[in-house]
Write a protein that binds this DNA or RNA. Structure first.
Lengths: 340, 340
DNA sequence: CTGTTAGCGCGTTCAG
DNA sequence: CTGAACGCGCTAACAG
């Protein structure tokens, strides 16, 4: 049914080897005569080489697998853009897999990509502080690296591999200091899923900034979302009910901060006059909400590009870790507290 | 280096055939005795079957390829979410390819996916009104479908295949009528790339609504962007300079409408008091900008899901086309013109 | 320069 | 229930 190299060879009246040579542009030359005949046969038959057969014989797959938490999340969208840019630049194809933040699915995808014999796997999801998960993950990853596969993690995981590490701690500390500098003392936090390393790092950084200024952060002023916009809105509602005296809100990512902005608007609480709001990541939408969101800029596209680069440039088993700095950007959602 | 089925068989002291049976869960049973030995060998060796070899002997690849214009565009992000959901539901893996809106790259990806012998290809980019492009595209697609590949287009293309067609004409007409009903007579349009069928359809629909009400749309009131936010901002600037009397702006997608909103804010033009703004698509961000954007809702996730479904459910060469309706949603960026 | 031969790793007959 | 043998489509030796 589907034409094979043998069909092409037969039609061109040459051997399969010769056909292969002209098609894959092998080292050695072929007479213009035969080359013509082969090319014609190829186009007559609409022949397209079977990549599986080629892969089986040993050619590198030139494919890298990418596992992301959720591609429609703007954070991942930016990161994958960086990855794709780098992939194109190096002539690679990417297989993007969406785990929908389900650890089991993530593991299944690693196996799948391993089975496909991809050159490298980039794990763009968040790391999780869970022993059994981490062990399972490690064992899947090990099986892959044991046969020469390369792996790069974006954000902190408890598994060995190359890594691109955004400075979550430093960024959160810096935004915390900024809030304190403005005069805020009662600050609410919309945190993320408890087990994610990203949540932990950002909380740690933020706490350290408050501690420096002797500002306390009672448990009642912390609520949790799942990094989605809607969870941020919902969490903001709970926070406002529970701690009406706060003058500022730190959401652990921009999506949740934007959700918070929407409930603040619904409740008639002016931002930044009556409430300051800050996020983290600096997704494109942060500029377009009203008021424009003050946040911590994380070069997401660059993180993606560097992850790809780390994976592809790996020599032997020498792993590398790259730290990427973050930077506070104050826009219009922050101001000194009203009653100051 | 990487363990093969033969290695597993050897370690388990069984034949490769037996090992294969227990691993791929073949029809026939194997004694518990041997099954144990094989399973142990598999885990000792960290054996993972080679998908290429499997594909070569005939197993369906269970992989579908997806070509999108730009994954970090919210429109495509939503569509791909629908695709991925459907893929998971049917046990498929997806290979997502980002053409970055480059026709040549798009063609190259079709070939690549064909070479990978994917079950189906979903073209989620926009159709283009260009003869030579369409012919090239058709020839690549034909080669793929000729050997049993399935193809689904999202949005109108000049190539045969299954298709999911959003009602761009009807949606644009409806939003045009809404603007006219509010009393607008001087309307500016931020159009898209001229060759895209989506641009054409939305323009046609919008024009028909204006024609019904004898409202004219002089060429001077039309500017073009490329569907990105920034191009929308830039186009809005030109539009305002050129046609200062307009009371409303229709941007052909939400991204550009949001860009327009930002320049309006910068120029101190109040929305909707002094200027109404509408978009198209209803991306998530449309709710979060200020004022919330009036737009045409397009069920993007559903489009993606249906595209996958069409591709997978295809029987023989019976192609199907599904029309998906759109719906106007008026939020806060629209009002009657000021001086009325 | 060209053709012949031998696998790559696997599933699947077909015998035993 | 188990094993031996074959072939999927292709490229890399090796001869001619």
């Amino acid at each position: 049914m589907t034409p094979t190299l043998a069909d092409v060879a037969r039609l061109a009246r040459v051997s399969p080897a010769t056909a292969s040579r002209v098609i894959s542009g092998s080292t050695y030359g072929v007479s213009a005569q035969l080359r013509e005949r082969v090319l014609k046969a190829v186009s007559d038959l609409k022949y397209v080489p079977n990549a599986h057969a080629q892969a089986l014989v040993g050619a590198s797959s030139l494919t890298v697998g990418v596992i992301v938490g959720d591609m429609s999340d703007p954070y991942f969208a930016e990161v994958t853009r960086g990855i794709q840019n780098a992939a194109i630049a190096s002539g690679r194809l990417t297989m993007m897999c969406n785990s929908f933040r389900d650890p089991e699915r993530e593991l299944a995808y690693i196996r799948l990509l391993h089975a496909q014999r991809v050159e490298a796997i980039i794990m763009a999801g968040g790391g999780v502080d869970d022993r059994v998960y981490s062990q399972k993950l490690a064992s899947h990853i090990d099986a892959f690296t044991a046969v020469g596969g390369r792996v790069t993690f974006i954000s902190r995981h408890h598994v060995v591999g190359n890594a691109v590490l955004p400075d979550n701690v430093g960024g959160a500390r810096a935004i915390g200091r900024a809030l304190v500098a403005l005069g805020h003392r009662q600050i609410g936090v919309i945190s993320g899923p408890k087990l994610l390393t990203t949540t932990r790092d950002r909380m740690d950084g933020f706490r350290s900034a408050l501690a420096e200024a002797d500002v306390t952060l009672p448990p009642g002023q912390i609520v949790h979302g799942d990094f989605s916009r809607d969870s941020g809105a919902e969490a903001a509602g709970r926070l406002l009910d529970r701690a009406p005296d706060i003058t500022a809100i730190f959401a652990l990512n921009d999506g949740m901060a934007i959700g918070a902005l929407s409930v603040l608007r619904n409740r008639g609480i002016a931002v930044p006059a009556a409430m300051s709001v800050v996020g983290f990541d600096d997704i494109p939408a942060a500029r377009d909400v009203m008021p424009a969101l003050s946040t911590v800029h994380l070069p997401m596209v660059e993180c993606g590009a560097r992850a790809m680069e780390l994976a592809l440039s790996q020599r032997g088993s020498e792993l590398r870790v790259e730290h990427v700095p973050t930077q506070v950007v104050l826009r219009n959602s922050t101001a000194p507290p009203r009653n100051r």
